[in-house]
Design a protein around this nucleic acid. Structure first.
Lengths: 223, 223
DNA sequence: AAATTATTTTAGGCATAACTAAATTATATA
DNA sequence: TATATAATTTAGTTATGCCTAAAATAATTT
């Protein structure tokens, strides 16, 4: 059995590997809010367990075994988030923190029961894909909202889950995954987005828009 | 915030305090399956936090603050057991182990939501009382089944929760809290109990009977 | 009361996982 | 190319919480 810390490292390496390429000790340490020296220590330990590949100054990569563990933890996390939201009504800005603690202690049995209760879902409350029992991650193709232009309509696919205040902000506009909206105007000089959500107008700043990913994008309205 | 180990010690001290009087270092260590020297160390730490009172060779007692923590953990544990059983269908012989891990990480918010979902229950799947938010423990008056005599009928109030095999055994007879049964015969020379549960006969050994507590006891059948 | 037995405490270790400070290695700049 | 800067690693420390072995204390027996 792995320690909680080891699981958190593997999960973080996976996530960082997803976005950018090389996962350096420093990047990893920053992401986990520990000092680089601490990350070096854990990397050594994970390497000795054949969960990561590492060469001095060259960054870490997950082995197949390490990736399997990472995906298992991520699956726990996202199923828990959805379960807490759907079954217990925990608001979507609160599920992340709660799942962060529960993901390390939940049994496979309870997880399977939650999965069944939820009807074998493929995305968590923030739109992030839930890996299946075999570690297969459902593909979600989306583009950053920041790339949208005037007149384009779309549907929210996914939002960043690690900032509760941001989530509350988005919730106040009903900007949940699945919600459709249309860009009314992008203010000049990299200004904010004005959008229409079911008849209601909202102004979304560019920093916020970077954290929203959309799909079903319709071509520009050429009126 | 307390460590998980500290919480387990407080919970154990509370439970041992309930049955017998003085909680010695040795008894506590045996209960927690650690060496007495380890218990001494933790007792010292808990004492420094004013959670227990301790004098060398005299045993430990919980302070009001310590008792409050113990009851909170016990509340977490028992609500979780009931929730896992009722909401997710986890069999009653599995809920203890699962709750043992979850009790230390569940938030007050999620606990309150489970409590509401369950309709503010007062007993867990094994019949143990669930302390309320203020640490008030509902009274459950019961007697050990071992004290029953021929012909007496009663209702199961509570069973020991720490032996999964025992629980599966009792489950096979439908001997859950709330189940009524009648003693048909107690075999002579401290032999086993033969009982009638809804028309079905079952033989219950004396060691098992010591782990069953009953109430609503009817007087002896004087035919 | 003295000796034996049992309990409790102290002392010293180990593993985990963080830290700081210093040394090393790689990269960027002059 | 040499030097400065940045990143990474090593070395040594701290804290938690367990362990074993030995010492100290209490309780029981003779």
């Amino acid at each position: 059995m792995l320690t909680q810390a080891a699981e958190d490292y593997l999960k973080s390496i996976y996530k960082l590997q997803e976005k950018g390429g090389k996962v350096s000790t420093g990047i990893l340490a920053e992401f986990l809010d520990v000092k680089p020296a601490s990350a070096t220590g854990m990397i050594k330990k994970l390497k000795s367990m054949n969960l990561v590949i590492h060469q001095r100054y060259q960054g870490v990569t997950l082995t197949d075994a390490g990736k399997a563990v990472a995906l298992e933890i991520i699956r726990h996390h996202r199923l828990l988030e959805l379960y807490l939201n759907k079954a217990l009504g925990v608001p979507w800005d609160g599920v992340h923190e709660e799942a962060e603690k529960l993901e390390h202690v939940i049994s496979e049995d309870v997880e399977a029961r939650m999965d069944e209760f939820l009807g074998y879902p493929t995305a968590d409350p923030h739109g992030s894909p839930i890996p299946d029992k075999n570690g297969v991650v459902p593909e979600i193709q989306s583009i950053p909202m920041i790339d949208l232009q005037n007149g384009q309509s779309c549907v929210v696919a996914e939002v960043s889950d690690n900032d509760a205040a941001l989530l509350r902000h988005l919730g106040s506009f009903n900007l949940y995954p699945g919600t459709a909206f249309r860009v009314i105007e992008v203010a000049p000089f990299d200004g904010p987005f004005t959008i229409d959500i079911a008849g209601q107008q909202a102004v979304i700043g560019r920093e916020v828009a970077k954290n929203i990913f959309v799909n079903n994008v319709e071509p520009i309205d050429t009126v």
